[in-house]
């Protein structure tokens, strides 16, 4: 039953069988993608040894971080349907969070390195 005291946005997400097929195809694509990325990550981790000075490890480390962001992007945009929401909603969720986290990561990791440095020095 339709309600007239509120606008039922909940109904806007409804779709028919034909459109459902398209959506499910996308879901299966993302499933395969996430699985493949995870397997690649584990293989890279198993074969490239951690070593702060080796270029190979540094490349692998950053590729882990990039792959993680890709996985996270697909989960948020497709599984959580944030990609289908209004742009203003998407921005209000993502932008403040990213700004704050970038700030926090920058501050905390630099501070950590400074603490490390002073422990090694004194």
């Amino acid at each position: 039953m339709e309600r007239d005291d509120i606008v039922e946005y909940s109904l806007e997400t409804h779709h028919d069988e034909a459109h459902g097929k398209v959506i499910r195809k996308k879901i299966y694509f993302v499933t395969v993608l996430l699985t493949v990325i995870t397997i690649v990550e584990v293989l890279l981790g198993a074969f490239i040894k951690q070593n702060a000075d080796s270029m190979a490890w540094i490349t692998v480390k950053w590729s882990f971080i990039i792959m993680t962001l890709i996985k996270a992007g697909y989960i948020v945009m497709v599984f959580m349907h944030l990609g289908d929401e209004k742009k203003s909603l998407r921005n209000i969720i993502l932008i403040p969070y990213f700004i704050f986290m970038a700030y926090l990561i920058f501050i905390a990791l630099n501070e950590g390195l400074a603490v490390n440095n002073s422990w090694l020095t004194y």
Partner: peptide, 19 residues
């Protein structure tokens, strides 16, 4: 997400500080 972000960043802090 801020809570978990804080936990992981805290982990990063300790890890970078450890000698």
């Amino acid at each position: 997400a801020l809570t978990f972000g804080g936990l992981l960043v805290g982990y990063g802090f300790i890890r970078h500080a450890y000698t």
